Amino acid sequence: MKRYSKEMIIGLSVLIAALVLFFGIDYLKGINVFKASNYYYVSYTDVNGLSVSAPVTLNGFKVGQVRDITYEYDNPGHVMVELALDHKLRVPAGSEAVISNDILGTSTVVLKFSSATDHHDVGDKLIGVTEPSMIDGLTDALKPAATSILPKVDSLLTSVNALVSDSALIRSVKRLDAITASLQASTAYLNRTLATMPGTMSTVGGVASNLDSITRDLAVVSEDLKRLPLKETMDNVNSITSNVNEVTGQLTRTDNTLGMLLNDRVLYDRIDSITLGIDSILGDFQKNPKRYVPPIKIF
Results as ranks from 00 to 15, higher is better:
Leu12Asn: 00
Val14Lys: 00
Ala18Cys: 04
Ala18Asp: 12
Leu21Phe: 06
Asp26Tyr: 03
Leu28Lys: 02
Asn32Thr: 02
Asn38Asp: 13
Tyr41Leu: 00
Asp46Pro: 02
Val47Phe: 14
Leu50Tyr: 14
Ser51Gln: 14
Thr57Phe: 15
Leu58Met: 08
Asn59Gln: 11
Gly60Val: 00
Gln65Glu: 13
Asp68Ala: 07
Asp68His: 09
Ile69Arg: 03
Gly77Cys: 06
His78Leu: 06
Leu83Thr: 00
Asp86Met: 06
Leu89Pro: 10
Ala93Ile: 01
Val98Ile: 07
Ile99Ser: 01
Ile99Pro: 09
Ile99Thr: 06
Ser100Glu: 02
Ile103Phe: 02
Thr106Gln: 15
Thr106His: 01
Thr108Met: 05
Thr108Val: 07
Leu111Lys: 03
Lys112Trp: 11
His120Ile: 07
His120Asp: 15
Asp121Thr: 05
Leu126Ile: 05
Glu131Ala: 15
Ser133His: 08
Ser133Met: 08
Ile135Glu: 01
Ala141Arg: 07
Thr147Phe: 08
Thr147Tyr: 11
Ile149Val: 08
Val153Asp: 09
Val153Leu: 09
Ala162Tyr: 06
Val164Glu: 12
Asp166Tyr: 02
Ile170Thr: 03
Ser172Trp: 06
Thr180Ile: 15
Ser182Asp: 15
Ser182Ala: 13
Leu183Cys: 05
Ala188Gln: 14
Ala188Val: 08
Ala188Lys: 10
Tyr189Pro: 02
Leu194Ser: 12
Ala195Cys: 06
Met197Val: 03
Pro198Lys: 05
Ser202Val: 05
Gly206Met: 03
Gly206Trp: 09
Ala208Lys: 05
Asn210His: 14
Ile214Ser: 14
Arg216Gln: 12
Leu218Pro: 12
Val221Thr: 11
Lys226Cys: 11
Leu230Cys: 07
Leu230Asn: 10
Met234Gly: 04
Val237Asp: 07
Ile240Gln: 06
Val244Arg: 00
Val244Tyr: 03
Val244Trp: 01
Glu246Leu: 11
Thr248Lys: 04
Leu251Glu: 06
Arg253Lys: 06
Thr254Ile: 15
Leu261Glu: 07
Leu262Arg: 11
Leu262Gln: 04
Leu262Trp: 09
Asp264Gly: 08
Arg265Tyr: 13
Arg265Ile: 06
Val266Glu: 15
Arg270Asp: 13
Ile271His: 05
Ser273Asn: 10
Ile274Arg: 04
Thr275Glu: 03
Ile281Val: 10
Asp284Pro: 10
Phe285Asn: 09
Pro289Arg: 11
Ile298Asn: 11
